[in-house]
């Protein structure tokens, strides 16, 4: 069985803790002066999405989680599952809502997402860092107001609501940063 030593710990490393796959968010080496070193680690349980903290004695080994990241195209959502397809093998997987975390509201059909598979089943779906989505609903734009600050809410075709500048009109295509959920720019069509 593959395992990692605490010396291998870094952000994104996937481990098995209490039989669940977890991903390291933060790893900090703590040492009481000259004594025994410990690794204080913040992890996300990839099944429940919950963040937990654990401390390891430095030098200990922890079982590696057998997970792989695959780029897959979003097909559709039937209200219960989100369906993705591997564009190379045409293999399909169904991700439950819990695996979507925040990703569901940013994606439309054919969007290429990163699907983290554990024993073949989808654990986490990560939307691309940037997506392009059309505005389906927003208050009318203010003419000439292209430089001033100030924002208004806009509903996007994926259902997400983001804050946009006042000059944005319905039907416009916008670039959104899915990590912060923020408007980046207009996309020229």
């Amino acid at each position: 069985m593959a395992s990692y030593s605490t010396n291998d710990f870094r952000g994104g490393l996937k481990l098995i803790l209490d039989n669940d796959p977890c991903s390291i968010i933060e790893n900090e080496l703590v040492k009481p002066g000259k004594g025994q070193a410990f690794n204080r680690v913040k992890l996300r349980n990839l099944k429940t999405g919950r963040v937990l903290e654990r401390t390891f004695k430095s030098g200990e080994s922890v079982e590696a989680a057998d997970v792989i990241d695959v780029d897959m195209e979003f097909s559709y959502n039937d209200g219960e599952f989100w369906y993705f397809m591997d564009p190379n093998t045409f293999e399909q997987v169904a991700a439950p809502d819990s695996a979507m975390i925040d990703s569901g509201k940013w994606i439309k059909a054919q969007e290429l997402c990163t699907v983290t598979l554990w024993d073949g089943s989808p654990l986490v779906v990560t939307a691309p860092n940037f997506v392009e989505l059309a505005v389906t609903e927003t208050d009318p734009g203010l003419k000439g107001d292209t430089a001033q600050g100030g924002t208004k809410p806009a509903t996007l075709e994926s259902g997400a609501v983001v804050k946009v500048p006042l000059f944005i009109e319905e039907g416009e295509l916008l670039k959104i940063d899915t990590r912060s959920g923020e408007y980046v720019s207009r996309v020229k069509s």
């Binding site: 040492k31 009481p32 004594g35 025994q36 410990f38 654990r54 401390t55 390891f56 004695k57 200990e60």
Partner: peptide
């Protein structure tokens, strides 16, 4: 204080652990 694995019966290790978690 939830303790890490592999501490065994090492007295100084337990002192160090409490030091890191509660004293410092």
């Amino acid at each position: 204080v939830e303790s890490p694995q592999g501490m065994e019966e090492d007295r100084d290790m337990w002192l160090d652990w409490l030091m890191v978690e509660k004293i410092a």
